[in-house]
């Protein structure tokens, strides 16, 4: 079966339904990106997958024994909490020093073992979170806006790292992002969410879908084109430049 199968999932907080009848599958080795405006239920969807939110209807099925690597949206480590990168890596289970070093290497931050988590830069911090998620050799990586707080080159580098991880380990990736242009160029499949699944498909299909354009405008489509260099210019050129700036 698929790694993750979501069928008819609805999520309610009180009287407020944030997700309606969502269907979604994640197959081994694919990179799936969920995009959508604020309040579209992206984070709730991810929370339902890790079991932090109970579905109101439908169900979330994970392949039995599925190893999940989770990279949270923002992890604030209080200044009163002393923890080295090495200790953080073994937080949810004992790991050998070589596994720890290998995971940090795969995440692009090989030399941080002895550093305090609270002293890392934003980019280093996110990569350590990625390394921690990689350490139990996950079959699927879940990333919730993992590049929040990084600048554009920083997040572009982060997503290149994700692609490299997928290439090297063959794990599937399900991620949420608001950085449409960067993220979509790295995805096999994009799902546009706004309380329900508006449209889905390859990045090109989604970028030109009317539902997507209604949500994000044509500017982001231009930005996507700029990054992908495949020039699907059926709109005014100036939009692309605005979005890219």
């Amino acid at each position: 079966m698929s790694l993750i199968e979501i069928d008819n999932l609805s999520i309610r907080y009180g009287a407020n339904t944030v997700l309606h009848h969502v269907r979604l599958k994640v197959e081994p080795g694919e990179i799936v990106t969920i995009v959508g405006p604020n309040g579209s239920g992206k984070t709730s969807l991810l929370k339902a997958i890790i079991g932090a939110t109970a579905p109101a209807t439908g169900q979330v099925r994970l392949r039995p024994g599925l190893r999940i690597g989770y990279v949270p949206q923002r992890l604030h480590i209080d200044a009163t909490f002393p923890i080295t990168v090495e200790r953080f890596m073994s937080l949810t289970g004992r790991v050998s020093r070589s596994d720890c070093a290998a995971a940090l290497e795969a995440a692009g931050v090989p030399d941080l073992l002895k550093r305090q988590m609270s002293q890392l830069s934003g980019g280093q911090f996110q990569r350590v979170l990625l390394a921690r998620a990689l350490i139990n050799r996950p079959e699927v990586l879940l990333l919730d806006e993992a590049t929040q707080g990084l600048d554009q080159p920083g997040s572009a580098g982060f997503y290149r790292q994700i692609e490299a991880v997928r290439r090297d380990t063959g794990c599937a990736v399900l991620m949420i992002s608001h950085e449409l242009h960067v993220v979509m160029s790295a995805s096999d499949r994009v799902i546009c969410l706004n309380g329900h699944v508006c449209c889905e498909g390859t990045p090109d299909v989604v970028a030109s879908a009317p539902e997507y354009r209604a949500l994000f405008g044509t500017g982001t489509g231009g930005a996507l084109a700029l990054y992908r260099h495949d020039h699907d210019h059926d709109h005014d050129h100036s939009h692309g430049h605005e979005a890219a700036e």
């Binding site: 929370k47 890790i50 932090a52 989770y70 949270p72 937080l91 949810t92």
Partner: peptide, 18 residues
């Protein structure tokens, strides 16, 4: 260990089965 994980981040805890 579960207490430390839950203290750091709730979602991280859920994802680790805590």
């Amino acid at each position: 260990s579960p207490l430390l994980t839950a203290t750091l981040n709730e979602e991280l805890a859920y994802a680790s089965g805590i």
